[in-house]
Design a protein around this nucleic acid. Structure first.
Length: 638
RNA sequence: GCCGGCGUAGCUCAGCAGGCAGAGCAGCGGUUUCGUAAACCGCAGGUCGGAGGUUCGACUCCUCUCGCCGGCUCCA
C-alpha cells in the first residue's frame, strides 16, 4: 500500500490505482496536478507505487512548476500548429526558469510573430481542453508520424524501446511525450513568450538549425511579474552596458580584436584592488608568486601534451629564427619548469606557485560574450605540488581558502560539484581514489551542498568545481580545484624522499576566481556597478557648490588621497550642485563630499551617501575614518 | 561556425512613398555662481557599418560582406 499525502496534510492509502482515480473516488478533484515519489515527478494518471510515500502536488508546490511549464510548451506547440500549418515539431521541455519548443517552420518567423502566438495560446487556455494521456502501439505511432512527415518525432521514436508509446492529447493537438502534464490546459494561466533563437537539432552543429521559442510560466501572476522584473534587472545590470557607462573597460572587435579586453583606468583600479587583495592573501597562505612568459617553444607544448589534446584551443604557431613558438593557453608547463629547475627534497613540499597568468585561447566568434567569454584572459592560477601524505590537508586548505576569498567579494551561497574518474584516464586507480576521497572530505568538512558527477572528471584527474550565486540568484562557476596525474608524469617531476629515492609528487591546479576578466564581469553584475567602498574605483567625489570653493575642494580631495583614499575634486566649474550630484550618482560613487562656503569656513564637508542619505557637515577626520573603516572591513555598507 | 533580429553623430534614438540627414545628452565657446539626481545661449559634429546593383535620384528597395545582440547544455 502506498501512503498518499494530500495538500492539506491528509493521508490516504492506495493500491492499484492512479492518483487521479483515487482522488475521484474520494470526491476530490481539480487541485492536484502531479505526484512526487521515488524522488521523481509523476503524472496523476500514472499508477501509484505499491508502497512508499507519495506527495500529491498542487500548482502552489514549487516542484509542480516543471509540470506546468511542460504543459505550457505543449500549448505553445498547439498554437504554432494552428497558426503555421506544416510546421514540424522537435522537442519541447521545461527548463530551469521556463520552457521552450523547437520547431521547423515552413517559412522563417520573427519576434513580431510572438504576440500572435501568445494570443492563440490564450485561446487554448481559455478553451480549457482536458489533457488526456493516450498509449499507442509502436507501429501505430510510427505510422502516424510517417503520415504527417514528422521526421524529428520519428527519430525520437526510434530511440524509445517501449512497445506502448505514451502520447498526450489536448483538443486537436497530440504529442509524443513522456509527461507528466497538468490535467487541463486551463491551468496554464500565467505565461509569457520571451525569445526566439536558433538551436541545432539535438544540439549538434552538424545537423539542421531549428527555430526555438522560449517562454516561461508560473503558478501566479505575481511570480510571473517578479520573474519578468528580474529579467529586466539583469538587463539593466548587464556588464556590457555598465562597462562603457562607468568607463571600466571596452572591447573593440573591429580594430583590436574580438574577445580582447581593454581595461580603462577605472576598471584597472578595481582590478588592482582585487589583485592586491589576492596577492596579500596568497602570501599569507604560503603561496609563492611567480611570473612566466606569454609564449613558449613548440617542444614544451609537445611534451605537455597540449599540442596533441588541446591544439584546437591554441593559436597558430609563430616562427622565430626557424623555431616554432606558441602563445600560452595555460601556465602549468612554466610552473613545472620552475619546480624542475633544481632537485626538490620531501622537506621542500608542499610548494605552491601562484601567478596571475595571462593566457590566450581560441573561442569561436559566436560564443564570445562581453567579459564572460573572451579570448585573452588572466587566470588566478596556482599549482600545489605536494607529497601523498599532504594531499588531504592541502585540499582542505585550498577549499577553505577559496571560500574565504569569495566571501570577501560578497558571495555567500556556494554549491560544489565533485567530478570523479572517467572511463579513459591516466594515473593509478589508487591515486584517483586517494585524491577523490580527499576532495570529498574537504567538501564535507566545509559543510557545502554538493553533487557527485560520476565519470565527469578530466582524463588527468578528479576535481571540485564551486558555483556561487549572485545577487540576482544566478549561479556562476568560479573556483576549480583539479588533480593532475598527467603532467607530473610527462615532465617527470620528482622529489627525493626520506629514503633517498625519487618519488612522484601530486600536483593540484586551482583557480579561485577563474579569470579576472570573467570575475570582473560577474562582480559588475552582482553589484549592479555600485561597488563596495574597498573596490570602488572612485570612493569619494568632492563637490564645490560654487567656483569660490574650488581651492577648498582640491584641498579636501588631497587630504583624502593622502589618507590613502581614492578621491576626486570635481572642479570643472559652472555646474550646479544638483548637476554634480546627479553625475556622481550615475557614476555610483559611494561618497559625495559637498563643499559650500559654510563647510570651507568650518573645515568640514557635508557627506552624502550613494544611497541618497545626507549626513550633514562632518569633520574631515571623521569622514576619513568612516571610509577607511569600510575599506578595511570590505563591507558593502557606506 | 550556424539560425533569427539589429547596424543613422562619442552615447540614446527619430526619419524614409525613394527627393537637401534630425533631436536630446556628451564635447567645445560663452553667460550664470547656484545647498543634495540635468541652469541658459550658441558652435561644431555624419561616406546613414562597408561593397556592388536597381533608379533621373538610394539612409530608404535588392545582393553580398563586416560588426553587434539573442541562442545553439537542459532532451519524447
Amino acid at each position: 500500500m502506498a501512503k498518499v499525502r494530500l495538500p492539506q496534510g491528509k493521508l490516504l492509502e492506495a493500491a492499484g490505482v492512479s492518483l487521479e482515480e483515487l482522488l475521484l473516488k474520494q470526491g476530490l478533484t481539480g487541485e492536484v496536478v502531479g505526484a512526487l515519489y521515488d524522488g521523481e515527478l509523476h503524472d496523476i494518471r500514472d499508477p501509484l507505487p505499491t508502497d512508499g510515500e507519495v506527495r500529491a502536488l498542487t500548482l502552489s508546490d514549487p516542484e509542480a512548476l516543471e509540470i506546468l511549464r511542460h504543459t505550457a510548451a505543449h500549448v505553445l506547440a498547439q498554437a504554432v500548429l494552428r497558426l503555421f500549418p506544416g510546421t514540424k515539431l522537435a522537442i519541447g521541455p521545461a527548463i530551469a526558469d521556463g520552457f521552450y519548443y523547437d520547431f521547423e517552420f515552413p517559412e522563417s518567423i520573427s519576434h513580431e510573430d510572438l504576440p500572435e502566438i501568445e494570443e492563440e495560446m490564450k485561446r487554448i487556455v481559455a478553451a480549457d481542453y482536458p489533457v488526456e494521456r493516450v498509449f499507442l502501439p509502436r507501429e501505430e505511432a510510427i505510422g502516424l508520424y510517417r503520415e504527417r512527415g514528422e521526421a524529428y518525432k520519428l527519430e525520437l521514436l526510434s530511440e524509445i524501446p517501449d512497445e506502448r508509446i505514451s502520447f498526450y492529447k489536448q483538443g486537436e493537438f497530440m504529442d509524443l511525450c513522456r509527461g507528466p502534464h497538468l490535467p487541463s490546459t486551463g491551468l496554464v494561466k500565467h505565461f509569457k513568450l520571451l525569445d526566439l533563437a536558433g538551436a541545432y537539432w539535438r544540439g549538434d552543429s552538424t545537423r539542421v538549425m531549428l527555430t526555438r521559442i522560449y517562454g516561461t510560466a508560473f503558478a501566479s501572476a505575481e511570480a510571473l511579474e517578479q520573474h519578468l522584473r528580474w529579467r529586466e534587472e539583469a538587463r539593466r545590470r548587464d556588464h556590457r552596458r555598465l562597462g562603457p557607462e562607468l568607463d571600466l573597460f571596452s572591447i573593440h572587435n573591429d580594430t583590436i580584436g574580438a574577445g580582447l579586453v581593454l581595461w580603462h583606468p577605472k576598471g584597472a583600479r578595481v582590478r588592482h584592488e582585487i589583485e592586491s587583495f589576492w596577492k596579500e592573501r596568497h602570501f599569507a597562505a604560503g603561496y609563492q608568486l611567480v611570473y612566466t612568459p606569454h609564449i613558449g617553444r613548440a617542444r614544451l607544448w609537445q611534451r605537455s601534451g597540449h599540442l596533441d589534446f588541446y591544439r584546437e584551443g591554441m593559436y597558430a604557431p609563430m616562427d622565430i629564427e626557424g623555431q616554432e613558438f606558441f602563445i600560452k593557453p595555460m601556465n602549468c608547463p612554466f610552473h613545472i619548469a620552475i619546480y624542475k629547475s633544481r632537485t626538490r627534497s620531501y622537506r621542500d613540499l608542499p610548494i605552491k606557485y601562484a601567478e596571475l597568468g595571462t593566457v590566450y585561447r581560441y573561442e569561436r566568434s559566436g560564443v564570445l560574450h562581453g567579459l564572460l567569454r573572451v579570448r585573452g584572459f588572466t587566470q588566478d592560477d596556482a599549482h600545489i605540488i605536494c607529497r601523498p601524505d599532504q594531499v588531504e590537508a592541502e585540499i582542505r586548505k585550498v577549499l577553505r581558502f577559496a571560500l574565504e576569498i569569495l566571501r570577501a567579494f560578497g558571495f555567500s551561497d556556494f554549491s560544489a560539484h565533485l567530478s570523479t574518474r572517467p572511463a579513459k584516464y591516466v594515473g593509478t586507480p589508487e591515486a584517483w581514489d586517494l585524491a577523490t576521497a580527499a576532495l570529498r572530505r574537504a567538501i564535507e568538512a566545509e559543510g557545502l551542498d554538493y553533487d557527485v558527477r560520476e565519470g565527469e572528471g578530466a582524463f588527468y584527474g578528479p576535481k571540485i568545481d564551486l558555483d556561487i550565486e549572485d545577487s540576482l540568484r544566478r549561479s556562476w562557476q568560479l573556483t576549480t580545484i583539479q588533480f593532475d596525474f598527467n603532467l607530473p608524469e610527462r615532465f617527470d617531476m620528482t622529489y627525493i624522499g626520506e629514503d633517498g629515492r625519487e618519488h612522484r609528487p601530486y600536483m593540484i591546479h586551482r583557480a579561485l576566481l577563474g579569470s579576472l576578466e570573467r570575475f570582473f564581469g560577474i562582480l559588475i553584475e552582482h553589484y549592479g556597478g555600485a561597488f563596495p567602498v574597498w573596490l570602488a574605483p572612485v570612493q569619494a567625489a568632492v563637490l564645490p557648490i560654487t567656483e569660490e570653493q574650488i581651492p577648498y575642494a582640491e584641498e579636501v580631495a588631497e587630504r583624502l588621497r593622502t589618507a590613502g583614499l581614492r578621491a576626486e575634486a570635481w572642479t570643472r566649474g559652472g555646474k550646479t550642485l544638483r548637476y554634480l550630484i546627479r553625475e556622481a550618482q550615475l557614476q555610483k560613487i559611494p561618497y559625495m563630499l559637498v563643499c559650500g562656503a559654510r563647510e570651507a569656513e568650518a573645515g568640514k564637508a557635508a557627506l552624502r551617501l550613494r544611497t541618497g542619505e545626507d549626513l550633514g557637515a562632518l569633520d574631515l577626520e571623521e569622514i576619513i575614518a568612516r571610509i577607511r573603516d569600510r575599506v578595511q572591513r570590505k563591507t558593502p555598507e557606506l
